[in-house]
């Protein structure tokens, strides 16, 4: 009987720890699959949030969103944000779900230009801000404050000049 109990406890501990580490990665994996379905290393602008927006719970109708699933396996990826007259922010999330970088319009009035590299790799010569990603893949998300249909259309137009591409 003892060996059964010991085995069950050991398996319980292994399961607990494995699921603990798998949960954030699994949720991010699903998010990357959804957001990257139309292609990685490219920005995709979402439609204005309405009652028909049902991908993520509690979507904010105040923002125009753009997302880019980045992949650094072929080298650095350049990410730029075109300035926007109201609040905007760029957030970077690693494959383990950590929000490892955020910049907003208070810090970067004239927009942002970032060279995203794999953590630990050589920093290339560039005028861009070099940011190290803890993982090879992840999600970049731009939020532009655009609470009305008119401002949302303007934000989508501004987003068309954003870059997310291998450098």
């Amino acid at each position: 009987m003892g060996k059964y109990v010991q085995t069950a406890i050991l398996i319980a501990i292994i399961t607990h720890v494995m699921l603990l580490f798998a949960l954030p990665r699994g949720l991010m994996h699903v998010a990357m699959q959804r957001l990257g379905a139309a292609g990685e290393n490219a920005w995709h602008s979402g439609e204005r949030v309405t009652a028909r927006s049902r991908q993520i719970v509690r979507p904010s109708p105040d923002f125009a969103y753009a997302s880019c699933v980045y992949d650094l396996s072929r080298g650095p990826v350049r990410i730029t944000v075109t300035p926007w007259p109201s609040y905007w922010s760029l957030s970077l999330y690693g494959a383990n779900s950590d929000n490892f970088y955020v910049i907003d319009d208070r810090e970067a009035r004239r927009g942002a230009a970032i060279l995203l590299i794999r953590a630990g790799s050589r920093h290339p010569e560039t005028d861009d801000t070099v940011v190290e990603s803890p993982s090879g893949r992840g999600i970049a998300l731009i939020r532009r404050l655009a609470p009305s249909p008119e401002t949302h259309a303007g934000a989508v137009a501004a987003a068309s000049a954003d870059i997310c591409a291998p450098s």
């Binding site: 580490f21 922010s89 950590d98 955020v102």
Partner: peptide
């Protein structure tokens, strides 16, 4: 939601309750 993971448990809680949320500063 929006906080920085201090360890695997907080990371799992943040991912479950606020995946891709804005940081608390924002």
């Amino acid at each position: 939601a929006g906080s920085t993971a201090a360890g695997p448990y907080t990371r799992a809680i943040i991912a479950r309750d606020g995946l891709l949320a804005l940081s608390a500063r924002e």
